[in-house]
Amino acid sequence: MSELVIGGVSLSSRFLLGTGKFKSKQELQEVIQRSKTDVVTVALRRIDIEKNEDNIVSYIPEGVTLLANTSGARNAKEAVRIARMSRETGLGNWVKIEIMTDSKYLLPDNQETIKATEILAAEGFVVLPYVSPDLYVARDLVKAGAAAVMPLGSLIGSNQGLRTRTLIEVLINEIHEVPIIVDAGIGRPSHAAEAMEIGADAVLVNTAVASAEHPALMAEAFAQAVAAGRLAWEAGAGDQSAIARASSPLTGFLHE
C-alpha cells in the first residue's frame, strides 16, 4: 500500500485517532496500541492545580505524532494562541485547527480557519484545518499553507457517516497538493472504508471508537477497515450496472 506523507512525516497508518471521551488513560493506551495509529489528537486545557494527575502524554507511545487541536477557539486569534501554547509544550508543531461558535452543531468556521491556517503555516506549524467541505475553501487552505484538508463527514460525534460524500468527492478529485482526511461523523468501520474507497487519503475517528462497548476491539476494526478501503481504492473498483451480469459462463448448460 502506498504511504501517506504529511508535513514531511511518512505515516504507515491512514487511521488517525482522537483521544477524547475514553473511560481511562489505561483504556486509551490499549486503544492506541490496537489501532496501530501514527497520529493522535489531543486538546489543551487548564490543569487542576490541586490534583496532581498524570498527563495523557505519558500514555501515548513514543513515535506517535501528537496533533494538538484548537478546540475552544472561537476565532482565528484564539486558535493561534492555543496553537502557540501547544507548541510550547515542546511536544511538536502539528496543529488541527478547529474553530467554532455554534454549540449545537459544532460546525467549523471556514473563514476564520483560513485566517488561522495562514498565520500558523507561516510560523512553521504543520497545519491540518478542520472544515466544512467546500472546494473554494479547500483551495484557499492550500494557498494558505495547509499540510492537509480535513472535511467533515457529518456532525462531530454524531456517528452518521459520510453525509457530505458528494462534496468530499469534489475535494478528492480537485485537490491534489495535500492529503484529504475525512474528520468527524465517521461512526462505523464501514463508513471509514467508504471514505477510503472513494479516495480519501486518511480518516480521523474518535467518538465511534470511544463510545463502543469494547473500544480497543473497535479500534482494530477501524484499522482493518481503513486499510481495506485504501487497498480497494488502489485496486480500482469495477463499474456498476443496473442489470445483472452473469458471473458464470452462459454457454455449455447441461440442458443444452
Binding site: V42, L44, R46, I47, S86, T89, I156, T207
Partner: peptide, 28 residues
C-alpha cells in the same frame, strides 16, 4: 503572554499576575 519554559527561572512573579497553567488532555 506565553512564558517560555527556558525563562521560567528568571521570570519574576508579581502580585496580581494572571497565571494560566495548561496541559494536554484527551480530545478529538
Amino acid at each position: 503572554n506565553l512564558a517560555k519554559k527556558t525563562a521560567w527561572a528568571t521570570t519574576p512573579l508579581n502580585a496580581g499576575d494572571q497565571i494560566e497553567v495548561v496541559a494536554f488532555v484527551g480530545g478529538g
